Amino acid sequence: MTVWDRPEPPTRPVPLDRERIVAAAVALADEGGLEAVSLRKVAARLDAGPMRLYGYISTKEELFDLMVDAVQAEILPEIPPRTGEEEQPADWREALRVLAHRTRHTVLRHEWLADLLGGRPTLGPNGLAVAEATLSALDGLADVDTVMRAVETVAAYYTGAIRREVANLRAERATGLSEHEWQRASGPHLTRMLATGRFPALTRAVHDATHIDPETTFTTGLAWVLDAVAAKLPPPPGGSPS
């Protein structure tokens, strides 16, 4: 039985429910990461005894599942819904693009979510709704196996890209150096290494590549992935793939 299937116990003496417990856990994680979350700390924030929480949540893993599902609600609002039982979304690319960008923005608000992306999907209502919105964007455009591979490919891209962006943000905080400051500090060593002539491709990249901001990088890469997915979808009747 999953945590979503178990009934909640009575709320006496301190009013409690899973929603309040999860909100407190999310607040702790937003402040200090997943390492700041424990049932004891959540209970302290709610002025409740730690043992009371076990009536609502059995393990920390269940608490993490509930936290992920809670913040997944932030991904949902702008995903274009299907408007009828037999209708397809006007633009499947836009549906997946919105999903990817809203996932990125949600993770940037809740950085701890990056540590839990890409694992087994949660089975809560918001997680299932995100999965439904994602699959329905492509439903009927190809066979179900092609749809699944397309969705997995897009998710693999944005999961990796988001995790890398968060890792860079954490490195900046840990070192106290912005990316530009870190590059300047590392410059003498890198210059010596490039001068050996052993890294010609890297040398060209360092000297000639255009620096772009994380959002532009994310948007460009996502567009390339969606182009690749479009090339694998059957063309619509009388036209080319969207």
Rank of each mutant, 00 (worst) to 15 (best):
D5K: 13
T59A: 06
S178L: 06
A150C: 12
L113Y: 08
A90W: 13
A73V: 10
V206H: 07
R102V: 10
A73E: 14
G127Y: 07
A209Q: 11
R192C: 10
V154S: 08
E94R: 13
E74S: 09
G49I: 04
D17E: 04
V14D: 05
R204F: 07
V68N: 01
A129R: 12
G49C: 02
W112P: 00
S136K: 10
T220K: 12
A231D: 15
V42Q: 01
H110C: 05
G187S: 13
G84L: 01
A155N: 12
V147M: 04
G238M: 05
A156C: 08
T122I: 11
T191S: 13
S38I: 05
V26M: 00
A133V: 02
A150D: 05
P81D: 03
P9Y: 01
E19C: 03
H101V: 15
L202W: 12
A43E: 08
A231S: 14
G197E: 04
E172I: 06
L226Y: 12
H211A: 13
V225C: 08
A90M: 13
K232C: 14
G239Q: 02
E85P: 15
H207K: 11
V154Q: 02
L202K: 09
A70R: 15
P234I: 05
T103A: 14
P77A: 04
L66C: 00
R52L: 10
R204N: 09
R164F: 14
R120C: 01
Q183C: 01
W224V: 15
E62T: 05
W112N: 00
R6Q: 13
R52H: 09
A29F: 06
T103D: 13
T210Q: 13
V26S: 03
P121G: 04
A100E: 09
Q88G: 14
T153Q: 12
T11D: 15
T216E: 14
R18S: 03
R120Y: 04
E31Q: 12
R173P: 00
E86H: 14
V144Q: 04
R82N: 05
R164Q: 14
W224H: 14
R149E: 13
L177Y: 01
G239I: 03
R102C: 09
V225L: 10
S178P: 05
H105D: 15
N126K: 05
I212Q: 11
T11S: 15
K41G: 07
A205R: 12
R104H: 13
L128I: 08
R163Y: 02
R204D: 14
S38M: 01
E78H: 12
A228C: 13
L141K: 09
